[in-house]
Design a binder for these strands. Structure first.
Length: 430
DNA sequence: AGGTATTCACATGAAACTATTCTCTGAGTTAGG
DNA sequence: TAACTCAGAGAATAGTTTCATGTGAATACCTGT
């Protein structure tokens, strides 16, 4: 125990040193860098996590959601809501914004309202969701529900009792509900009001998968989708308004052209009207301009930003790929570089060669075929089914940017070195 | 020449198997009264 | 004695293999002119 205390104080000492002791030396470097950046006034405004004080072109949705949630201010349970919309259509922003307004009003009128936001992409199991909600009601570390160890129904009943103890209305937001594993939680949550004595609850489900409810249990579907809200994609004009609004806050006067904003809006509108992408594009363009030491953001920077974002996306996808998928991709890169296009059989042949070299176990062709179609879906390679008549039916695999992908893969230490690997295919008939 | 059958090389589906992760339970341990 | 921790059993899940069936069109083969 004594050692432990000693260790803790040592860590504190180190932390203290890093935070305060070093500051003196570091200040100057950053100061210089800070003064050189003249484009940004406040970069945070362009981040996806930023919730603006007003959301252009979403007034209708906000009003609709607010009118659904209004009963909570009278202590009644609002209807459950289901919200659809593609990524970057402002679903999360609208919900958190309305939630903030609601809790403000609740404080004003002194009504007990809790607003619980859960991102189901991160918290995705029944147990963790219930635990997460329950912990909103529990003060102090000691009463908290542990990460693991309890039976799920115990957590559920603990949740019910603590909700009843607090009373009032709880609005539970489940962002990306389609990511939840199993639909038991949704069933339990949608019926939670039947078991609550004093408190009331309502669930807001957010999803970007329009087909999500088709696979749900009809009971859940009807109780969860009492109200439906659909968020249409933004048009190019709407995106421009949004960008304008943010740009005013994010950039210094005269550092950005209107044409740049229009271009970003137009590019994002082509891709399903995604506001997040538009903001990313604008931010990265400005970052590039700043790094190049330019005073103004120009259209050429937007084009550079587009390339950078695409490369980052691909890099990120490849980095998080499982090892076998990487091996298949590596085989595809090597094969297409040498032969132009490949069939599934060719690719499998090369893949086997690579596996043998690196000492990896070789998957069956059936599985590799599935991995190829996964890579195709992610847009890293192009594989389309073609029939070569007498010579069978196969996928034709091509790659548009194999050199870039090869570069990314070559930095991956988990893959075998294939610099000198010369794949030989069996005699090709065509 | 025109029509039909065959054939190839996988695609695609379903079931079965395996390894890993998640839940749950009960036994052992600890701290507080 | 109640609360907590942890190991291990069992369930759930993801990843993979095995087996089976399906597919599109170039080619082989047949038929009649």
């Amino acid at each position: 125990m004594e050692n432990y205390t000693c260790l803790i104080s040592f860590i504190y000492y180190i932390a203290f040193y890093i935070v305060f002791g070093e500051e003196e030396n570091m200040k100057d470097i950053f100061k210089e860098l800070l003064s050189s950046g003249t484009i940004f006034k406040n970069k945070e405004v362009l981040r996806p996590s930023y919730i603006p004080s007003f959301l252009p072109h979403r007034e209708k949705q906000i009003e609709e959601l607010a009118s659904i949630l209004v009963p909570s201010l009278r202590g009644e349970a609002p209807s459950n809501v289901f919200i659809y919309g593609k990524t970057g259509t402002g679903k999360t922003a609208v919900v958190t914004f309305t939630g903030k307004e609601l809790t403000n009003k609740a404080e004003e009128y002194n009504v007990p309202i809790k607003f619980v936001y859960i991102n189901c992409e991160i918290v995705d199991t029944q147990y963790r969701i219930l635990q997460n909600i329950a912990n909103h009601f529990i003060k102090g570390w000691n009463d908290r529900i542990p990460f693991t160890g309890w039976p799920t129904d115990e957590v559920y009943s603990r949740l019910l009792s603590s909700m009843d103890r607090e009373g009032g209305v709880t609005v539970i937001v489940l962002d990306e509900v389609d990511k939840i594993k199993g639909d038991e939680v949704l069933y339990n949550l949608s019926r939670i009001n039947d078991y609550l004595k004093r408190a009331r609850a309502s669930v807001i489900g957010i999803s970007n998968d329009l087909k999500f409810t088709e696979f749900l249990d009809p009971r859940i579907k009807s109780s969860l989708g009492e109200e439906n809200l659909v968020f249409p994609p933004y048009t190019a004009d709407e995106l421009r308004d949004i960008l304008m609004e943010r740009a005013k806050l994010a950039f210094n006067e005269g550092t950005i052209d209107e044409s740049v904003i229009s271009l970003c809006a137009a590019k994002a509108a082509q891709e399903h009207g995604d506001a997040r992408r538009a903001l990313d594009l604008l931010r990265v363009s400005a970052e590039i301009a700043e790094r190049l030491g330019e005073k103004r953001v120009m259209e050429k920077h937007v084009r550079m930003a587009e390339n950078k974002i695409e490369l980052d996306r691909v890099t990120e996808i490849i980095r998080t790929l499982p090892i076998q998928s990487k091996l298949v991709l590596l085989a595809a890169v090597i094969g297409t570089e040498k032969y132009g296009s490949l069939t599934t059989g060719d690719l499998y042949h090369i893949y086997k060669g690579i596996c043998n070299r690196g000492g990896f176990n070789v998957l069956t062709q059936r599985r590799v075929a599935d991995l190829i179609s996964e890579l195709d879906m992610m847009g890293i390679l192009n594989a389309r089914v073609i029939s070569k008549g007498r010579y069978g039916r196969t996928r034709e695999i091509e790659m548009s940017s194999s050199s870039k992908i090869k570069e990314i893969l070559s930095k991956d230490s988990s893959l075998p070195d294939v610099e000198d690997y010369k794949p030989k295919l069996q005699a090709r008939l065509v």
